[in-house]
Design a protein around this nucleic acid. Structure first.
Lengths: 175, 175
DNA sequence: GGAAGCTACATGACATGTCACCCAATTCGG
DNA sequence: CCGAATTGGGTGACATGTCATGTAGCTTCC
């Protein structure tokens, strides 16, 4: 127990950085939700799910893996997939390797919805995020975010995404 | 996986930066929620509201101003304040200047809850965000985030928050 | 091989957020 | 001053997210 570490204080610079982060995150979330909803009839969570699936081989992913990747509760994912499958965007199909597991699979309609929504979303991201950013700061921003990401993975409560969890610690970090 | 590079959207570097941002935001939100909930019996939205009020003169703020500051829908704020006031954390009081307006006012209990919750939250932020960050990158990160914030304010759909551009959801230095 | 315990999910009750629409006070144009 | 338009806010129905719990398949170990 170090005498001082009990009451952690952020430096003024850190505080301002943190406030800026929170402000950006709140407003950006709002704008993304709004744009997706009105232009593509998708919520941001819908979009995240579609993206994660489209990025996976065969457009399919086991629920636990998908939940970890999205940092969602599994029950949330379960409910959400039920609603998305009711809309025809995804399907549930039993896993080939584990009979208690379920895979979420992107349907053609889901892929089409994603394809239709992506340009508008990317455009928004460019306009809201990158157009106001000094290009000289981009590499530093990227590195900083990747460092924070690694930190959250290492010290956070969520398992590391990607492959099976529960492996021995000491694996090299990856971006 | 991007055969039609005809879309003039994001450069590869921008894409990776964006993905890193989204990953950080998802996991960080999860961790903050979890920590506040288990340690202080507050949700992150609760905490944001308390912080915004505590940062305002008299611990009071008109609903529209508060909603704008938090990037919330007004009806959401209305419902949320109803629940928070049922828990004794805030009160509603009619505005002095405009008889249709309502102010949200921090109660003593609300201020106490905030004071109790802040150190743990700050500790989490330090551990998850800043401890893994190369200090040399901090200034660039801060500037980048401030540029993005300005961009979202300028080109976003939300009105610019009130002049007292004080702190947003976050934490106070605490003495 | 079979009970104990873990893991993968589903589900129902309940908390939270959104949308459409409501009313009252204020403002504005005659 | 009168009435329409605007602004500040509340509300109820419904969409979404969380928590506690239930069930089935896998795994371990004797």
């Amino acid at each position: 127990m170090s005498p001082n570490s009990g009451s952690p204080v952020l430096t003024p610079d850190q505080q301002e950085t943190w406030f800026a982060y929170m402000r950006v995150m709140l407003r950006l979330s709002h704008e993304m939700n709004r744009q997706l909803q009105t232009d593509s009839d998708l919520s941001l969570p819908d979009f995240d799910v579609l993206n994660a699936l489209a990025d996976s081989p065969g457009g399919r992913l086991q629920l636990t893996g998908l939940a970890t990747r999205l940092a969602w509760e599994r029950s949330r994912l379960s409910h959400h997939l039920q609603r998305m499958s009711a809309r025809g965007l995804v399907e549930r199909s039993p896993s080939a390797t584990d009979r208690r597991a379920t895979d979420a699979v992107l349907t053609d309609a889901g892929r089409a919805a994603l394809t239709a929504a992506t340009p508008g979303h990317a455009e928004l991201v460019r306009r809201m995020f990158f157009d106001g950013l000094d290009p000289a700061l981009l590499p530093a921003l990227r590195t900083a975010l990747e460092q924070v990401h690694e930190q959250v993975l290492t010290h956070g409560t969520l398992p590391r995404p990607g492959r099976p969890q529960g492996r021995l610690p000491g694996l090299e970090p990856e971006a």
